[in-house]
Amino acid sequence: MNDLSAYHRDTQALHAGRDPDANEGVVNPPVYHCSTVIFESVEELLETRRDRASGAYVGFTYGREGTPTTRAFEDAITLLEGGYRAVVTSCGLGAICASLTAFLSAGDHLLIVDSLYGPARAFCEDFLKKFGVEVTYYPPSIGDGIEALFQPNTKVVYLESPGSLTFEITDVPAITRLCRARGITTIMDNTWGSPFCFRPLSHGVDVSINAATKYISGHSDLMLGIAVCTEDKFIPVKKTASGSGYCGGPDDIYMALRGLRTLPLRMRQHQQSATRIATWLQGRPEVARVLYPALPDDPGHALWKRDFTGASGLFGLVLNACTDRQLAAMLDHMKLFRLGYSWGGYESLAVPTYPSDLRSAQKWEAPGPSIRLHVGLENVDDLIADLEAGFARLAAAA
């Protein structure tokens, strides 16, 4: 099955990146553990050098550049996201760093959303600024108002929707429309939605990034990133990622391909369970508000409904005023919502969050502490009981 373009994404997720006819009928692509590639002649070796120099990247020259296992994963995610080609990296942050540095030089200006992933913000502050890139943060709700922030040297606008901790939705098409008119490259972190719930390139984005560590893998057992590019953006990202050493390991890539096969089913269950729990939380007296764009009364719901085809299991909640002691009493003894960073696996997680520490363009206002929940694939009644017990501990610690 070569041309999958006419099929639904569920079918594409199952068949993309597989070619049993080329692999002795084996269903899954083989894992290539590779550093060295052998060539039969000087002419063949020189041809691969020309391939790299031209930016075609058709053949295989060295393990860091990729293998057939890498290509299978890149092809699969490219199909799901509707891109030209993709670049695998060692982690999601690697895909972010490679994509940003591919299009930025000293003296350039970067516009980046104020609600972005914390390590990406740290990269901008600790590295990009150090090397002469001017960084300006914009409010996630800015929409076409971003035009007022453009400068003659603005080269990249970076988006993340919804934001990592506050889950604010950005009007992606409004921003990309203005950027395209000015030749500004747009890069978006699509990890929350995954290729199943949002396709950034169809909304005008140039480079779509996924931390495959999370939903694509789905099992909390690997580190991997991938950047899906339009045709004119592929070569800069590929060259930067390869030159920076951001290569993914073959076993991690294989496991991400295996996780991809169940992505549609898992995402539907994550959304169904998260929606039920988020709705339940809205009725709790301890909760000031729930931060989940799939809820009808969320401020970003209209944009989410217009642009997204689903939601993930990651969302936030703001508690009414309580002490640090009460918050710790609630979270320390959870049985199912265990304390842990990352998300996107089968298991539920909870972490306290501090959005105000990571905002500069728009102040974050909240009456009490914030919590980020990842709703996994456990029974929803069991998860609600776990939260209920946590609220009881919070009250008892007053």
Rank of each mutant, 00 (worst) to 15 (best):
C91W: 13
G163V: 09
L116C: 14
L79M: 14
G82W: 13
V157K: 06
G92F: 10
H109I: 08
L165I: 05
R121M: 15
V87H: 12
G94W: 07
S164E: 15
K130R: 14
P152E: 11
C97R: 13
R121P: 05
T101Y: 04
D75T: 15
E168G: 09
T154A: 03
G107R: 11
L111C: 11
L178T: 06
A102P: 12
A120K: 07
F150E: 00
F103Q: 10
Y138T: 05
C97T: 14
Y84S: 14
E160W: 05
R85Y: 12
K129Q: 14
V157C: 08
L165V: 01
F167T: 09
C91E: 12
I96G: 05
A148K: 13
N153C: 02
P140I: 02
K155L: 07
Q151K: 14
T101G: 08
G118Y: 03
C124V: 02
S141P: 01
I77E: 11
N153G: 03
S99Q: 07
P140S: 12
G83K: 07
C97G: 05
S164W: 03
Y138G: 03
L165R: 11
Y138P: 01
D144P: 05
P173D: 09
F103C: 10
E147L: 09
R177N: 05
P162V: 02
I96W: 03
T176G: 00
S105M: 10
V113N: 07
S115N: 15
L93I: 13
I175S: 02
F150I: 02
P139D: 08
A86E: 05
A98K: 10
E147K: 06
L159K: 03
K155D: 03
